[in-house]
């Protein structure tokens, strides 16, 4: 593997057939590949998540990150679009699932695709990745420190975020959860509750909770970055993708 890739901004059909912006990275040194939908964190469709998207392509997977806030502020800087989406109470779950479905279909239709697609999400995207896996035929679901997969937010939270663990029976693929022991959203009690629910639903899953790490330990441009947890987490992710999407 040479890690060669092509990356570009494209337009895809999202929820309701809306054309939305997406960042697409595809390996150029393999004949066939699995794929992954990358769900950005609450701060939006930013440079660091584009870097993550390219990393998947460098490791042999087609990766596509839909801009979930494209409708709120087309063409705006990612942090401005994220601020507007936050002020509006976040984005509806139904729209998120529609956008991930659009990305999944785009990836499956690639002539070089092996037909298998996983999803990964960070922060708010962790919950959204789990939700997408409950409603869409994804071969693998990766949740990186997603809050409120279990546990109900306090009533005063203006974001339209509700727990989605009740939909776990819909999961068709394996689940990988990567968490920080020092995180409060989700805390270890919540990740244990999620593990219990997946066990009860008969689902295959792997959870890793890293000591000395909190929320957003994968973000190399933030003080929350924890190199050991991030390196081990990336190894887990690529091992997971090898067994779920090839």
């Amino acid at each position: 593997m040479t890690h060669d890739l092509n990356a570009s901004t494209i337009s895809i059909a999202g929820h309701g057939g809306d054309q939305i912006e997406a960042y697409f990275a595809v390996p150029t040194d393999v004949d066939q590949h699995g794929s992954i939908v990358v769900i950005h964190h609450l701060p939006g469709y930013d440079e660091s998540t584009k870097e993550i998207t390219r990393r998947f392509a460098a490791h042999g997977y087609a990766a596509l990150m839909p801009n979930l806030y494209h409708r709120e502020a087309p063409g705006a800087d990612p942090d401005d679009a994220a601020a507007i989406a936050r002020n509006n109470g976040g984005i509806p779950d139904e729209r998120l699932v529609g956008d991930v479905e659009g990305a999944m279909k785009y990836l499956k239709a690639l002539s070089t695709s092996n037909g298998k697609v996983a999803s990964i999400g960070y922060c708010s995207g962790g919950r959204q990745s789990f939700l997408a896996g409950c409603r869409l035929p994804l071969e693998g679901v990766i949740d990186c420190y997603g809050a409120f997969v279990v546990g109900t937010p306090p009533a005063e939270f203006p974001l339209r975020v509700t727990p989605v663990v009740g939909e776990a029976s819909g999961l068709t693929g394996e689940v990988l959860g990567l968490f920080g022991a020092e995180d409060k959203f989700p805390d270890t009690a919540q990740t244990e509750e999620l593990a219990d629910a997946l066990r009860a639903a008969g689902k295959t899953f792997t959870f890793r909770t890293y000591e000395n790490a909190g929320h957003a330990f994968f973000s190399p441009n933030r003080p929350s970055y924890r190199v050991e947890a991030a390196n081990e987490g990336w190894d887990e992710i690529f091992a997971f993708l090898a067994r779920t999407v090839g």
């Binding site: 964190h41 609450l42 936050r86 002020n87 109470g89 922060c123 708010s124 809050a147 409120f148 937010p153 306090p154 005063e156 939270f157 203006p158 974001l159 975020v161 995180d183 409060k184 959203f185 909190g214 929320h215 957003a216």
Partner: peptide
């Protein structure tokens, strides 16, 4: 942590 908690006005 991501608190999500947001005052809007």
């Amino acid at each position: 942590m991501c608190t999500y908690q947001t005052e809007t006005l």
